[in-house]
Amino acid sequence: MNKFILLSIIMLMPLCFAQDISVEKLLAYNKWSSQHQRVYLNEHEKLFRQMVFFENMQKIQEHNSDPNNTYSTHLNQFSDMTKEEFVEKILMKQDLVDHFMKGINQETTHSDSNNKETQLNSKSLTLADSIDWRTKGAVTSVKNQGDCGSCWTFSAAGLMESFNFIKNNVLVDFSEQQLLDCVYFTRGYNSYGCSGGWPDQCLNYASKIGITTLDKYPYVGVMTNCRGSGTNNGFKPKSWIQIPNTSNDLKSALNFSPVSVLVDASTLGIYKSGIFNGCDQSNISLNHAVLAVGYDQQGNWIIKNSWGTQWGENGYMRLAANNTCGILSYNFQITA
């Protein structure tokens, strides 16, 4: 049995015995495990997962009973994971994030005169009080990355899908699997499959090779051999810019199109609805890529995630205004 699970069972056992494991809790667990089709290796792992579930359920109940909280939490597909497991299994690997952030200032943005013109024009743009690209038909359906840390491909694909709609008035799902398979470090890109990667690397790849549609290259949730041959695979972004790190700049960009953004998602696993402000702002790690599709009148960011429609507000979330969870740190937008 996994040593981590065994150690965790030993550590959690006193907590389990100390809790009053009621029939109500057991019924809640059985209903949840049936709904999410949980099958475990053995009884030891099942016991461990039950203990983790009960602990998470207690935290959810305590959080939701506090009227001062601006968001609610719920049981979902992550409810039998510890926080540490969630970060390790679902988000981008911490060593990759740390390595990337050290070299972030050395990264060069793909730019040309069109990019510079767009940046200059954005500063004089009259901002809408609120904007939501879903209402304009510019956002495809919510997807589910599964247990692969491929969020960066979903963020990039979503960005290209929306720009393609705005430019060509056609809403098409692009292939995240093509990006997962082909945008890899052995092929010259700073990305590492299910361990993590960066949306701008996908734009670099697609600008040369093109990105095909989801139906032609379906998502399977593990890295496979790259099947993106040739240089005429479909949509090709021509230019893109990195958004400056201010709320007004991100709002300006969102008046033009959705934006690929990086956030710290370490505490997002149990989010259900409302305005999320639950990140540790003193210790931000940009470990998850998502798509910003707008903002509301209070300046809260509207985010499309890739954890399925059962998570959050039908797969979306509202993130508190300003730099909550590091959202202003490293963002990209296609300009042509």
Results as ranks from 00 to 15, higher is better:
I5R: 02
Q19Y: 08
E24S: 03
E24A: 11
K25W: 01
L27E: 11
Y29M: 01
R38C: 10
F48I: 00
Q58E: 13
K59I: 03
H63D: 07
Y71P: 08
F78Y: 15
L91P: 01
L91M: 10
D95Y: 08
D95Q: 04
V97R: 09
M101L: 09
G103T: 02
I104L: 02
T108K: 15
S113L: 13
N115K: 08
D132H: 13
W133E: 10
Q145A: 03
Q145Y: 03
W152A: 01
S155L: 01
G158T: 05
F165K: 15
N168L: 14
V172Q: 15
V172A: 07
Q177W: 02
G193F: 10
C194D: 05
I211M: 03
T213Y: 10
M223A: 12
C226F: 13
N233S: 07
S252Q: 14
F256D: 09
V259W: 03
S266Y: 02
L268V: 01
L268G: 00
S273R: 11
I284L: 15
N287K: 08
N287C: 04
V290I: 10
L291R: 00
G294S: 14
W301N: 14
I302Q: 09
K304R: 12
W307Y: 04
G308C: 06
G315A: 00
N322C: 05
I334H: 02
